[in-house]
Amino acid sequence: MKKIIPPILFSAALGLAILISKKGSASRESLLPLSRSVAEQEKGLDRAAAVAFPLSVDEERAIGADIDREIAGAPAAPGTPDAALAARWRETAGDAARASSVARFRGRYEFRTTPDGGENAFALPGGFVYITLPLLRRIGDDRDALLFIAGHEIGHVELGHCADAYRLRAGDRDPITATLGGALSVGRIFASMHFSSTQELEADKFSVLLLRSIHADPQGALRAFDALGVRAETDTKRDPGTVAVEGLADYFQTHPGSWERRAAIEREIAATR
């Protein structure tokens, strides 16, 4: 029995290599799996801090409202193309905000547009979600892609990412909270550089789940990336230097790369099929 195990294992290994090569998805060497695992632990600690330093829904809303007042510009003039875009944004994002997975600020989301900031979308604490007009023009008529973007930003709010960012800074309610919060916020700033990509991936996942729940096409997420120029990477063989640079540079990047982001969405689409 012992003698046949090596040939069996050897054959199984070779067979598996061929099978995965032909049927499996592309894979490559990367430091990101390890890096992402560490970042998830950091985010876990961040969530533990949320338990220790809770921020209520109203407190978060008040923070967001303050920022919103500062950055909200004049709405587009009625009848203009920008006004039509803004209306379409409000309607589509409103559909997303009515999904069952939206709980924290249910019914309180406000969707705004801004002409500045390139092709971008962002969320403020408390449910204020912005999108830039250039991005709206880029997305065009693809409703599912727009839903994905809205769901992504709603995800940042629902998952507490916006609150987590402002939580420790608002700790001036009592001396202990202020002191500890100030001390912890310093560490959080450094750690947040690492787990910001993790938060982006969580928001992507939330958005895919949201699209499923409202019976939209999750493939819209990939189309949104295509529209934004975040193309699929086909290079599966990279020299060690490139891999190392990618791993190190990831610490300072706020968003994951195309390969990782698209792969995560494809996994989520396959898992929720």
Partner: peptide
């Protein structure tokens, strides 16, 4: 090496 393999979409095989 197994710690540095990114399986991408991690599609299912069988």
């Amino acid at each position: 090496y197994s710690f540095f393999v990114d399986y991408g979409a991690n599609a299912r095989v069988l």
